[in-house]
Design a binder for these strands. Sequence first.
DNA 1: CGGGCCTTTGACTGGTTTCAACTTCTGTGG
DNA 2: CCACAGAAGTTGAAACCAGTCAAAGGCCCG
Lengths: 188, 188
Amino acid sequence: MQVLLAHIRKFVSLSDEEAETLMRYVRPLEVKKKEMLLREGDICKEMLFVGKGCLRMYYINEKGTEQITQFALENWWLSDYTSYDRQQPATFSIQAVEASEVYAIAHDKQDALTRALPQMERYFRLILQKAYAAAQMRVFFFHNLNREEAYRQFSSMFPGFVQRIPQYMLASYLGLTPEYLSELRKKR
Amino acid sequence: MQVLLAHIRKFVSLSDEEAETLMRYVRPLEVKKKEMLLREGDICKEMLFVGKGCLRMYYINEKGTEQITQFALENWWLSDYTSYDRQQPATFSIQAVEASEVYAIAHDKQDALTRALPQMERYFRLILQKAYAAAQMRVFFFHNLNREEAYRQFSSMFPGFVQRIPQYMLASYLGLTPEYLSELRKKR
DNA sequence: CGGGCCTTTGACTGGTTTCAACTTCTGTGG
DNA sequence: CCACAGAAGTTGAAACCAGTCAAAGGCCCG
């Protein structure tokens, strides 16, 4: 829980007493590798914060293969926000890539939380602003670069992460086939 | 200004008196077609709300051609959020596609605004949540569909909008060449 | 009415996918 | 602790989606 508190305190102030209050609205959970946190079609009832480990969000495309749209590492929030915002069936599934420590805030408790701790409204605004900014930059990169350049760029930006996940997941995230990624790796 | 007030009131309550207060923090501006609202390299000092008209966000890629990453129509907010959030030089430029009515909120006034009207913190959180949700769905569509399908999907989702903008801008936004788009239009 | 920008057309090119077969790695039960 | 089955990664050939380039035609706006 300390990881989450530390993250929040980077954006807003929170006394020890307020931290106590906060913890009553947070559900901590330990998940095993490959454990599912959200299934396509279910309602996304919680926002998920990764304290330790790694999650992925994906869907099954028409060819029947998994297409990864997002990873979440330490200190990132992950949700199907369309499902969360409107409480409608999810487009995406969320699964643990590694054994992970996750902290969840439920949609139906978020109102009460922000009433109890108004500064949390600001915190959520700021993390969403950063997440949206990252999404804009992602469009920039993947429009601008071809697949090969995208792979090299991504590898050099997150060298540790590339080792951490299976290659076929990286291929899926970058939008290329495992075969082609294999060819690129051979080249250099 | 009524358009903005109406939009805010869809998410949070705002008395007439509070609306008065709000207006002191908003800069309304009329822009002509092709007028620039942000240039790459400048600091994005404001969030922009489109009351009427249409804006586009773009950058110049290494080949020297404009690459559009986003459009904003009526009731949408647009900014280079990386630049806005960290007050650092912008990656993108923003320009009016049509003559437009725009309402701007300055970064250095946003704090004072949310102190004067705490419910605005909630408003911004909610519109960012929706914007981020839309960004997630966009990744879903454009990973899943090939260029032809993306074009047909987009045309059927926003038939009016496709008429409203020049073809080369649509091509740029969808990430294909004007020549190829022309070929697709001929086909059906 | 003219000039420049937008759109169309066609030939050629290449980056990337698909498919199928083979090899290597990994984890689970005996 | 080893064996083995399934999962993950590699290789190569053939096909295709989409880009590039060049040139001509259409259309908007001054």
